[in-house]
Amino acid sequence: MRKSFGDKIIDGIIVFFMAIIVIIMVYPLWNTLITSFNEARDSMKGSLYLWPRKWTLFNYQSVFKTDKIFKAFIVSVARTLITTIVGVFISGLFAYVLSRKEFIFRKFLTTFMIMTMYINAGLIPQYFLYRNLGLINNFWVYVLPGLVGAFNVVVIRTYINSLPASLVESAKIDGASELKIYFNIIFPLCMPVLATVALWVAVGSWNSWFDSFIFAPKQELSTLQYEMMKILSSSMQSGVKQPDYLAESHTSRSTVTPNSLRAAMTMVATVPILVVYPFLQKYFVTVNIGSVKE
């Protein structure tokens, strides 16, 4: 179909609006990026729009040289890696078990698991449970509660169901054990869905701050997000005490402000996500639809 003149105008209007949307999506992060590379005292003068005025790496140095922030960064990395690797692997295993049509407890276990998506005892009973399990102020409170998510298992199972059943059957005839079938046959074939689930789990774990706030408030277990939360709320709220490293940093030669430090931390927290995400983008659509159909 050849485009008429009117069509071209409509195209132009749509492109124009899309460009505005892109700017609205990108600009806040861009502004944070240039703030993170701009000298903190200079940033306070304002009017920093498109490019840093006084380049510096000091904000990033502060992030990695401030002991508390650096430790929080390590905790964030550790919790994310452990939760993702272990979580995806064992969610996949359970999904495989639930995909086996002849399994006698399949229906019961599926219902038992799906119910957990809807029932929720609420924050306080949850807190008491973690306390009784010794998880309060314990690193594992970051890992255990989110290790096997019902939704993720359902998504992986749907994917496994779409694979030819003969794969498993012929392996069984060859005498392979269940674990072997999962490791050698199902797991490699499920890479697209596992990659997507891994991204969800990783992003969820990396971005979480509430569990630090409620279940693991002690400083040694603080995460990058939680440190950002502390800085953000101290700059928004007059009564809240700033984290002490902000006060300390003023005594040094160069200075760092809550805003600049937070800008650098925001970039540190964002870059890993931006790096992995284009590789996984192609899987979003298939998995998204699969999960809705379920």
Binding site: I21, V22, M228, M229, Y277, Q281
Partner: peptide
């Protein structure tokens, strides 16, 4: 262009609420 717009528009979904609220409060 459509591809680029799509890719960019999915991105904020992956940012934490702390970061998003920080961006909003800055803006």
């Amino acid at each position: 262009f459509k591809r680029v717009v799509q890719t960019i528009s999915y991105m904020p979904h992956f940012l934490s609420w702390i970061i998003v609220c920080g961006l909003v409060s800055n803006a």
